[in-house]
Amino acid sequence: MMTVDFTLNGKRVSAMVEADDSLYKMLRGLGISSVKCGCETTNCGLCTVHMDGKAVLSCSVPAPRAAGHDIWTLEGMGRLAKALGDCLADEGAEQCGFCAPGLMMNVLALAKENPNATDEEADAYLAGNLCRCSGYMSQRRAVRRFLDGVVSGEWEKEEVQA
């Protein structure tokens, strides 16, 4: 076992992990329930979190590598995450909802990197987030609505946190 000290959603935390644990497993062990594991083979995007401001797949990031780094999950994303959740709900973009936390984390990364993304750019950015229920069109509408709101400042005046 080894100790990993890092920042989680803005707070310093410590976790005991095995040498081969993933960041996903460590986060779940710390009570972070938004992070889900779908494929465990880097294909589905369900386990997306932010590491030093970038969206990464927590199922495949070694837990020890998080030491000294800054990790954010949906729990820490505040009002913008709520606004995005509302957009998804309003557009009927969820059925089982299992893919939502990973999708939302990647949309929030997109909003920070390129809030003026066109639909095509957003599609390309989010291509690593699979959804087996929605057929994607409703998600696409929700993402459009959310990004438009980010650009117009509709959701809040605060910066996108990541």
């Binding site: 880097t42 294909n43 995007g45 495949s60 390309a124 989010l126 690593g128």
Partner: peptide, 12 residues
């Protein structure tokens, strides 16, 4: 490189 899996994957 842009067709490789997804943004999160290519970030790592």
């Amino acid at each position: 490189l842009s067709p490789i899996v997804g943004t999160q994957f290519r970030n790592t």
